[in-house]
């Protein structure tokens, strides 16, 4: 079945020009070896493929200065990087959580729902990757795989992805592990998997194990952990009836009396997730939906690039 393309409104919903402007100069490079079929930014496992100089690219902070083309700089007074022929392209797949918990946002606040934030985040990164000639794909899930758009660097790929995101309804529970296992089986070639979720799953351990499945298949895995500010700070004052999403029941609580205990639970959870991700070499980033997306992505990408440079330096 042919996948529909996003309308203009849908594109505007998830592709904020302001954000795109902010991140357009950044790269999202795979830290590990990925398998592409066209030349790109990423190290290829295949010898002799695109070994010649390909093009120049404008220098961005974090680039290794040894790749600066000083001649061009002398002529144009601008700093360019020489891109080498061993670079290949990247197949990136965004796994966006479309479960019911992702539709949470603090009432009366101007923040986005977690899903909208996650979708915007994925779209922005996909846009950026596509600009890098990388192939991007999308998978949305709740208790099962809802939609899967295989990676492609087709010019319409982004529109397909945005349409898929905009039509996702957040109604069901999260069952992440089976989805991950299924996708890991699907994705034959090594690439990058970016999971955007709130990780509100029954069993985090099982989820991390599922993500390690990607790692075992040679994929680089990034985890953007989306949390609402209210979920991180529990700012409620008066007696509140919390009605749980994803069929979690309801409870009337005096929030002030329970805040410390709640935050302790949340912090324990975050700490555990972070620790497990580090152990599994999953690039983890906790994202607060109250933060501006451009800042979040900029810092995230910059951090990755810095880490990538360190790795290259080590080699």
């Amino acid at each position: 079945m042919a996948q529909q393309l996003a309308s203009k409104e849908e594109l505007h919903q998830y592709l904020d020009p302001h954000v795109l402007e902010k991140i357009k100069r950044l790269d999202l490079r795979a830290r590990h070896v990925v398998e592409g079929f066209i030349s790109g930014l990423h190290r290829s496992p295949f010898q002799g493929f695109s070994v010649e100089f390909a093009t120049h690219r404008e220098y961005v902070p974090g680039d290794d200065i040894k790749h600066i083309d000083w001649k061009v700089q002398a002529r144009t007074d601008r700093i360019y990087i020489k891109q080498y022929e061993e670079e290949t392209n990247l197949k990136s797949t965004f796994l966006v959580d479309g479960s019911e918990s992702m539709r949470f946002r603090m009432p009366d606040s101007d923040t986005m729902t977690k899903f909208d934030y996650a979708a915007t985040c994925a779209a922005a990164l996909a846009y950026m990757l596509q600009q890098q000639q990388d192939a991007v794909g999308l998978a949305t899930f709740d208790e099962g795989l809802m939609e899967y758009i295989p990676p492609s660097n087709s010019p319409t790929q982004l529109k397909r992805m945005v349409h898929a995101l905009s039509t996702t309804e957040q109604r069901k529970k999260t069952e992440l592990a089976p989805v991950c296992h299924r996708l890991a089986e699907k994705m034959a070639r090594r690439g990058m998997v970016c999971l955007v979720t709130d990780l509100f799953v029954d069993d985090v351990e099982e989820t991390i194990l599922a993500l390690e499945h990607f790692r075992h298949a040679g994929h680089e895995v990034m985890l953007l952990h989306i949390m609402d500010d209210a979920e991180l700070t529990f700012p409620f004052q008066s007696v509140t009836l919390f009605r749980g999403l994803e069929e979690m029941g309801e409870e009337t609580v005096e929030p002030k009396a329970l805040r410390d205990a709640y935050l302790e639970e949340v912090n324990t959870f975050l700490h555990e997730v972070k620790r497990r991700c580090a152990a599994a070499r999953i690039d983890y980033r906790l994202v607060n939906t109250s933060e501006h997306l451009d800042a979040v992505l900029s810092s995230f990408l910059a951090a990755r690039m810095a880490a990538a440079r360190k790795m290259v330096a080590k080699r």
Binding site: F104, D228, F242, R243, G244, E251, Y262, E265
Partner: peptide, 14 residues
């Protein structure tokens, strides 16, 4: 007499 909030992080609350 309380506010009603649809809450995602119910697991931690419980």
């Amino acid at each position: 007499r309380f506010k009603i909030i649809e809450w995602a992080a119910m697991k931690f609350l419980l």
